[in-house]
């Protein structure tokens, strides 16, 4: 099994390390041709404006096409922003691979960044996660399953349960936070199981 990691900018090394640790082959994706022969793709955290600026048209087109054709894709933080259908406060291009609206820097600036433990459907009740200038989801389409929510302190939320911070629609998995910054491998295992099921 070969997992590509979009390597234009951001936390590429961390995702590759987890993939290797789980005894799968990781490969770097910078150009459209790098998308050949991968079984799944991770879009890492980074700066979404920079990553979308660095993505050339061919790569953007091929990536969007593969995601619509069913290639398992996992976007963390900036990766979630790129995969979303719509972005509040965004100025980059969207791959529109998952029917959600995302708000950029929704929890605030770096001083508001935090780590915590989350209950995630199908994964665990105490998964350690790191939110860095993180986005959250403000709208989900009908086909989207919400896997985790987080209630920010002192912020009004549309739901008493908090804002969705992890979601899945068919082959596309997204999270507001960075599982790659912790030693807990359960979220990556969950994604690799999606890749296995798709092949």
């Amino acid at each position: 099994m070969r997992i590509g990691v979009l390597a234009l900018q951001g936390a590429v090394r961390e995702h590759l390390a987890v993939i290797n640790h789980l005894e799968k082959e990781g490969s770097i994706v910078k150009k459209a041709a790098d998308l050949d022969r991968i079984d799944g793709l991770i879009l890492p955290g980074g700066e979404s404006t920079a990553i979308s600026w660095l993505m050339d048209e061919e790569l953007e087109h091929r990536l969007g096409l593969l995601a619509r054709e069913g290639l398992p894709v996992f976007g963390t933080c900036a990766g979630m922003i790129l995969l979303a259908d719509q972005v509040e406060g965004g100025n980059g291009r969207q791959l529109s691979a998952i029917d959600i609206t995302v708000r950029r820097n929704a929890f605030g600036r770096q001083i508001e960044s935090f780590e915590t433990k989350l209950a995630i459907t199908g994964i665990g009740s105490d998964v350690p996660v790191v939110f860095i200038r993180a986005p959250y989801i403000t709208r989900v389409g009908d086909g989207v399953q919400i896997l985790a929510r987080y209630m920010p302190n002192g912020k009004a939320t549309s739901s008493s349960l908090g804002f969705p911070v992890m979601a899945k629609e068919k082959n596309v998995l997204v999270s507001s936070f960075h599982p790659e910054l912790t030693d807990d491998l359960r979220i990556h295992r969950y994604f690799l199981a999606m890749v296995e099921a798709a092949n």
């Binding site: 900018q9 951001g10 980074g46 700066e47 920079a50 780590e115 790191v130």
Partner: peptide, 19 residues
């Protein structure tokens, strides 16, 4: 929930890599 931990601080720098 914890803010300002070393992981949160160094984590932002990790996100800037390659930039």
């Amino acid at each position: 929930m914890e803010r300002g931990t070393f992981r949160v601080k160094s984590g932002l720098a990790e996100m800037l890599k390659g930039g």
